[in-house]
Amino acid sequence: MSDDTSMNETPTIETHTEAKSTDDRSPASEADADVAGMDDQSIGEETVIEARDLSVFYGDERALQPVNVEIPDRQVTAIIGPSGCGKSTFLRSINRMNDMIDVARVDGELLFRDTNVYGEAVDPVALRRAIGMVFQKPNPFPKSIYDNVAYGLRIQGKDDDLDEQVESALRRAALWDEVSDRLGESALDMSGGQQQRLCIARAIAPDPEVILMDEPASALDPVATSQIEDLIEELARDYTVVIVTHNMQQAARISDKTMVFLTGGELVEFGDTSRIFENPDNQRVEDYITGKFG
């Protein structure tokens, strides 16, 4: 399964390209409470998001084993792991999108700038204004390009100088040159890659602090994917980006930190991306990255 010929510019050792992992066939995970490599975070990085024993349940089923992690400011943190391992569940617990699932329940704490987002006084709507999100499939509204980008600004009451803000967001999303002369046209007429960059523009327009991305390039062709990847690295100058991906090469290319979830919703390892891909602490992570399972 491992395919070493398609190595890329990132200095990783072995990368498993057949990333669309199906169901796991690994033995049941040992109760390994300590996440390997938690200590290689350099001192001085400011933490934006911190999970403390965060677990998520769907009904009686535990979707996420207690997660402890600190996500640093203005870096790209990638979340990788096989399908159904809880990557998206963790991502969606950050901005409380899991609230929309009736049976979902959360235990533990998730701190955003030292406030537990699951605290009594926190409004999930206010939280989502500070933490934007881009989804797996491009989901523009059936409105004009302009109105899509302006939507978040309007509902958040940030609608002074709307034209300038829309232009700025489209520029930051590397889309302005392609659409500046047709802002009034329907967003649905754009290509898939353009639509996804439009969704990114829509997410960054109200200037959130963190941007969550749930496999944002999985529905796109290689050219569009590479545009999105460039854009993500660009965005990390101003924003904290947390991205779920099933593509390990992508994680290696664009992220500074990597979280590896393995089966059963367990965060097995977290650390600098280069170290995780070169020299993971955990044997199972190494097996996963080298393509021995998953």
Partner: peptide, 12 residues
């Protein structure tokens, strides 16, 4: 961005 921004009362 301060933490208080997330509360119901302060979020507007």
């Amino acid at each position: 961005m301060t933490a208080a921004d997330l509360t119901r009362d302060a979020s507007g």
